[in-house]
Computed example of a mutant assay.
Amino acid sequence: MISNEIALGLLFLFQTGFGVLGNSFLMGLYIVTFFTGSRLRPIDLLLSHLAFVNDLVLLFKGIPQIMTTLGLTNFLDDVGCKLVFYCHKVARDLSLCTTCLLSSFQAITLSPRSSWLAKLKARALKCIVPLFLLCWTFYLLTNYTILLYVKGPQGNKNTTEGQAFFYCVATFPVSHNIAIHILTVSLPDVLCMGIMVRTSGYMVFVLYRHHQRAKYIHGNSLTPSGSLEIRATQTILLLVILFVSFYSLNSILILCIPYAKSSWVVYTSAFLSTCFPTCSSFILIFSDSQVGKYVLTLWEKMMIQF
């Protein structure tokens, strides 16, 4: 009979493996399509960046969790713990930021020509790369506290002083400035979540209005799913809903870790933190029709060459 630890290890192994495979496939597809001269959508730059940071989340969270559940302990020293937690937190924040940019960009793209958002379409295309640089710089700087307070388990014998994650310990002193922490960590997350909820509501409104107009003009013969742009919007709405759900549940569990007596809270939190990076790639692969077109185009070019 398989023990609970081995079952958990296999669960994290399959989750991390499939997630990395899906995100790497998407990222490689966009890169190869770009270098073969095919025309990419502007939104594909955001999707490839999302796949990249999701890969980082899976690698820096999934691999240590797999090793822990399979019985490997104390495999990281203080430096290793600091780097693993820091890279995971930065990648997690970048995933949030990219999803926020993705929903905002799609809301601008979907907006009617008479809307004031339509005037931002041309500017939005030019701002994607600068916004990436801004997000990377901001989160690399604001997560510096992890480098100060995360330690290896052998470096802190009394794990009750902080949050124990089996392979590392986070100890935050009482003198830690809560106001600075809220401004630099919590407030940006809340702002991004608020933007995603608001832009998602706007896109739902636009889709509903489009459906009503199409139903009035063409009857039941034309539905919103017939438009490639609207199908992409539906995919992004699904991504936003999943991200907000998993992110909210995981944030609640992280707050409960210092007070929880069961190790299952830590395992569940780790599982939820890697659910979105795993699911998002397959949602894009199976829901975004443009991904299938890229694959078909590359396959035809390969057949011509051989």
Score class of each variant (00 low, 15 high):
Q15R: 04
C81F: 11
R113K: 13
S111N: 06
M27F: 14
F25K: 06
V32I: 14
T36G: 00
S48P: 00
L56F: 13
G19H: 05
L70K: 04
L58H: 01
A107C: 15
D44C: 05
T68S: 15
C81K: 08
I63Q: 03
P42R: 10
P112D: 10
S111H: 06
L96M: 12
N74G: 09
L8K: 14
P112I: 13
L8W: 14
A107V: 07
N74I: 04
K61G: 11
F60D: 07
L58S: 01
R113Y: 04
F52G: 00
G71K: 11
G62K: 03
S114H: 10
L11A: 06
F85K: 08
F34P: 00
F75M: 09
D44H: 15
L10Q: 04
D93I: 00
L96Q: 06
L40T: 06
L96K: 01
P42K: 10
T98I: 09
G37A: 08
C81H: 10
N4C: 02
N4Y: 09
G19T: 06
C87I: 15
A107D: 07
V90T: 05
T68R: 05
L29N: 04
V90P: 03
S103F: 02
L47T: 01
L94W: 06
F12M: 12
L101A: 12
L72T: 11
I66F: 09
S24F: 12
S114Q: 13
G19F: 05
Q65G: 03
K82L: 04
V79A: 14
L10P: 00
G71T: 12
G37R: 07
R92I: 07
L47H: 05
D78T: 15
T73M: 06
A7W: 09
N54I: 00
Q65N: 13
L45I: 04
G22Q: 06
T109Y: 11
L94E: 13
F34R: 13
I66P: 00
F12G: 08
T99S: 15
L59T: 08
I6M: 12
I43T: 08
A91C: 14
S3N: 08
D55T: 15
L59K: 01
L72I: 13
L58G: 03
A107F: 12
D78R: 10
G80R: 09
G80D: 12
T98V: 11
G28S: 14
R113W: 02
G62C: 05
Y30A: 02
L21M: 14
Q65L: 10
S95E: 14
I66D: 05
Y86N: 11
R113T: 12
V53F: 10
M67T: 01
N4T: 15
C81D: 11
N4G: 03
T68M: 05
L50R: 01
T73C: 02
Q15W: 10
H49Y: 09
G28P: 02
A51W: 02
I43V: 13
L70W: 11
I6Q: 11
A51E: 02
